[in-house]
Nucleic acid binder design. Sequence first.
DNA 1: TTCTCTACTGTGAACGCTCACAGAAGCATG
DNA 2: CATGCTTCTGTGAGCGTTCACAGTAGAGAA
Lengths: 343, 343
Amino acid sequence: MTMNAAGGRRRPPTIHDVAREAGVSRGTVSRVLNGGHYVSPAAQEAVNAAIRRTGYVVNRHARSLITGRSDSIGFLLTEPQERFFEDPNFNVLLRGCTQALAAHDIPLLLMLAGTEDERRRITRYITAGHVDGVLLVSSHSGDPVAEQLRGAGVPLVACGKPIGLGSKVSYVAADDRDGARDMVRHLLSLGRHRVGMVTGPLDTPGGVERLAGYKEVLADAGLAYDERLVVSGDYSRASGEAGAERLLERAPDMDAVFVASDLMAQGVLAALQRAGRRVPQDVAVGGFDDSPAALASSPGLTTIRQPWDRISTEMVRVMLAQIGGEDPAAVILPTELVKREST
Amino acid sequence: MTMNAAGGRRRPPTIHDVAREAGVSRGTVSRVLNGGHYVSPAAQEAVNAAIRRTGYVVNRHARSLITGRSDSIGFLLTEPQERFFEDPNFNVLLRGCTQALAAHDIPLLLMLAGTEDERRRITRYITAGHVDGVLLVSSHSGDPVAEQLRGAGVPLVACGKPIGLGSKVSYVAADDRDGARDMVRHLLSLGRHRVGMVTGPLDTPGGVERLAGYKEVLADAGLAYDERLVVSGDYSRASGEAGAERLLERAPDMDAVFVASDLMAQGVLAALQRAGRRVPQDVAVGGFDDSPAALASSPGLTTIRQPWDRISTEMVRVMLAQIGGEDPAAVILPTELVKREST
DNA sequence: TTCTCTACTGTGAACGCTCACAGAAGCATG
DNA sequence: CATGCTTCTGTGAGCGTTCACAGTAGAGAA
């Protein structure tokens, strides 16, 4: 007596029911479901109406069984878990990818590889063909998981240029060097001459490139490279704090600092404030990422925006193209300077 | 000439291949795969050896097609996206659930419902039976998605007690009231008498319960409830900051404050420092959650630990029990006071 | 012996879909 | 009128499992 939904849990309609309802064959319904080529408008309409009437939704398992595709893709994070807990960039990227995939009706399977055990399990899961491809986030070089997946022929799209994986793996990245140049030019344009830098880890392309941009602009401006003005961190807040302390010690006359991530920049701000330096009056601070952390810090952080939305949509686009048989591709996206109160 | 992995992409072994290799029938292999009841030790061993030799992994789609289960479960977050970006608690919970599910070889599908459009899409996806159950994170009351899912009979386990969903939905929560009592007792034990509070949103059970605990302890200690000492926030950092400012204005003699989340407590610390109050000397600050934010703040935040690991494993346990046919259950877990430098 | 019971094993029939193929209909071309 | 081409449609087979059922063998009871 009640509607379908309540209690009963009756068997859901199949493609067969839809075909009968629409007065056509299974084949025609299937064709409508998959793009509608070679289907007459009349049949098209009849099938769509029948689908609406019956409330039919495709059984993905039956489809996958025959197509061999799972129509789902994995999001694999091989960073240590503390970084996942600390850095909101992951959340932004995760949300972007989830959304971009949802537009194609593809679910995202979350895979977090912290321990060695997890790495093994996840590798096995992926190489078993349970996902069609993997969106990879792993900044450090020599990632064994990525290497294995690539070897197994799993479509892979990395966020940021992966080190040591050859040209066979696609990636989407922001233009790190150009962004760094913009920021350092901005700092110089404020009349600062003692510009320090807290770099990212130098075994990552991002870390190297942002440092390269810094050096280039200094050279162009005729300023000598002073190694007392450069320390390196690991993108964590704590390393930013420690870095700033070292800089203040080694170069007390520093009047600006370019920090390779917003999270580290938060640490830098804290260290500067503790040391009694005013930001931006005494020391101007520029970050990188435009992560939510940049807005949350006080004063608001001037930073280089990574176009996270475009990065995630591009990752998904490249992934789908690759699953469709295209060759791996590299996409570099432009960054943008966002001025706030810290400079 | 090369091993299976490279280039070739040959057809993976099926249960049939394993059966032939082991000299038994498909049925026997299937029985070994599913728990091994009614299988002789000899056959058991032969099948396992054959599986190892062939590198067989089950085709989940074929299995799902016949069992009707998807063997995957969704993690649904209906919070606004800013909260997802700001609050590391979500990451902790997400990781916990991913891990707990992985132990059962069940993938986690991430579902983020920000816009109305996404809500619809996700609801359709879930009610279509593409997941076996949903782990739900949505603190606010009257969540229409949750209501619909419950109506459709989808197994649901919420994190935190859901409002307005009747008793038909399982949940796992920390003992908010007891945790709040512990914290306020701790603050009083330091000799403070003017203890303020920044509450969570009062349309959430967590918000209400933590406030109730605060009131209880004050009453037990014979202290009058002073409404100038209580402001409410929305768990965001910014609301903590604003709350602290209001408290300082309305009750300048405040010597301690209990903040209903660590994130808000970060904001409170910032506001206090800006107002020139020393923590903990002038004002002691206690948070709630023991989120990564508590460790990152300076001074380190005394807080009430929510047992995130147990919360996530319990959520998964209850979920699997429910899928297995058991009734919805409520689990309340004890909290723990973690002392750091802010008190 | 014969029967029953338990422990184990094999087999056919689904599950709901897509794909390849065959065929029909309509229309232009030889 | 046959032929070919294009557009559309229906049908059978099969994807890799699990499940129900039938059947076998061996042990113990009648």
